[in-house]
Amino acid sequence: MTLSLVSLTFIAVIGLLAIGLYALLVVHNLIKVVVALQILAKGAILGFILAGRINGQIGLAESLALTVIIVDTIVAVIGLSLAVQIRHHMGTLDVSALTRLRR
């Protein structure tokens, strides 16, 4: 049995989302946290393409995917700039150093 394009994409979507969520839970570097968020968002974008393919509205799906790419790039930029500031003021990029507010 050969896998169809749709089921391959479906597996890719699930895989990307799973990798992103897992990475978000285990990584300790702030830059890597942003990368994990990016992987998650890429899974969602591929999901939109898959949805467009299933219901035959691939054009609409592509324009939605482009919008998601823009928004998620902005989020990445802000995340990275916050990481830069944190490195600047606290001297580390380790998540476990962010315990100032825990009580």
């Binding site: 978000l24 968002a41 995340g79 916050l82 944190i86 962010l98 100032r100 507010l101």
Partner: peptide
């Protein structure tokens, strides 16, 4: 310039983006 507000901002960003 306040480490505490940077920390709060980053935590908020990660949770909200996820």
């Amino acid at each position: 310039n306040q480490p505490a507000s940077l920390e709060a901002g980053f935590k908020y960003l990660v949770q909200s983006a996820a």
